[in-house]
């Protein structure tokens, strides 16, 4: 049986949910999500440091989705929006979790897995050096992505990037990424 996205989505919707969305990830959607989450963060009376971290990481997570999302084939569009992605932001006891999910074609799985595994082994100093290297040497893609998103997220949160790849069918995998921002720091 293939991976059940609805089941996975409802599993993510535990704890204090600030925002949950599944559907097409567009520029307008990103603006709306940012506005809603920003005002919801104000309700929690977090320090400006935490608010900023959550907001920054949310921007990068959403824009990672936006830049890397696959346009799904017609047959899948019966069930999913064209640029289907999932986002859930929730507050747990001692940290925030930002979860994103999107389809990726099977040929991209290994490269992405290696990239994240590498980031997860790096120290703070190494991440800083990697960030500066990419910043200074790699050009922006036409869409505006710079290959810096995940490095930036790892650097700002100081936490491991937790992920899974679930097989959907012969072509697609569903990529889930959980990013944590600690409350006390």
């Amino acid at each position: 049986m293939s991976f059940d996205i609805n089941e996975y989505y409802s599993r993510l919707n535990g704890g204090d949910v600030l925002m949950a969305f599944k559907g097409s990830i567009t520029s307008e959607l990103i603006s709306n999500v940012l506005e809603v989450v920003e005002s919801r963060l104000d309700e929690y009376d977090e320090s400006s440091k935490i608010r900023k971290k959550v907001y920054n990481v949310l921007v990068e997570s959403l824009q990672n989705l936006y830049h890397h999302i696959e346009v799904l084939p017609d047959v899948m569009q019966k069930e999913y929006d064209e640029k289907f992605g999932i986002l859930v932001v929730c507050r747990l006891d001692d940290r925030y979790r930002i979860s994103t999910g999107n389809f990726i074609t099977q040929d991209k799985v290994d490269v992405l897995r290696k990239k994240i595994d590498k980031i997860n082994t790096m120290s703070r100093e190494e991440l800083k050096d990697m960030y500066k290297f990419i910043l200074n040497h790699q050009r922006l893609s036409e869409k505006g992505g710079g290959g810096l998103g995940l490095v930036d997220i790892a650097r700002k949160t100081g936490n491991q990037l937790e992920y899974t790849f679930e097989r959907y069918d012969d072509i697609y995998y569903f990529f889930n990424l959980d990013v944590y921002i600690n409350l006390a720091k």
Partner: peptide
């Protein structure tokens, strides 16, 4: 107040 990684290259 905030800048994303896409902007970081342009700022450079």
């Amino acid at each position: 107040e905030y800048f994303n990684t896409s902007s970081s290259k342009c700022i450079l």
